[in-house]
């Protein structure tokens, strides 16, 4: 990268890629992987999610990570982001809960109310 124009080109492209519609992904699962999350088991949760995604052969699901949202008391925290729908943030997730979220929310489109912290558009 040399110039501001180059930077802005990268930005445009990155913004496009972050939109789900433009890619092949229907849904994005974002796991909060800061030390707080990891201390509460976010790594295991991530593993369980990847495991479910591959076992169920879900090719349109993207699993990524982010830092902390500041909700220490609710870690591990995950977001489920779907184009055109409200982002659902789940808290106090365990591997079992994560598997349930995959089965109900990701596969069947039903929000697992018991684990929701917030819903945002």
């Amino acid at each position: 990268m040399k110039t501001l124009d180059d930077l802005r080109k990268i930005r445009k492209k990155a913004q496009q890629e972050m939109k789900l519609r433009e890619s092949n992904n229907r849904i994005k699962i974002v796991i909060s992987m800061g030390t707080s999350g990891i201390a509460m088991g976010a790594r295991e949760v991530m593993k369980a999610i990847l495991d479910e995604v591959s076992n169920r052969n879900l090719t349109d699901v993207l699993v990524t990570q982010t830092g902390e949202k500041g909700l220490s008391s609710m870690e591990p925290v995950i977001d489920v982001i779907e184009e055109g729908k409200q982002t659902v943030t789940y808290g106090n997730i365990t591997t079992e809960k994560a598997r349930k979220i995959i089965a109900e929310h990701i596969v069947n489109g039903k929000v697992v109310n018991d684990f929701v912290i917030t819903v945002q558009s």
Partner: peptide, 19 residues
């Protein structure tokens, strides 16, 4: 250890465990 939001906390080698 800087994970006070999930106290009490311990670290085993480089892994952290909270609550």
């Amino acid at each position: 250890l800087g994970i006070c939001g999930n106290a009490p906390v311990m670290m085993i080698n480089e892994d952290v465990y909270g609550d």
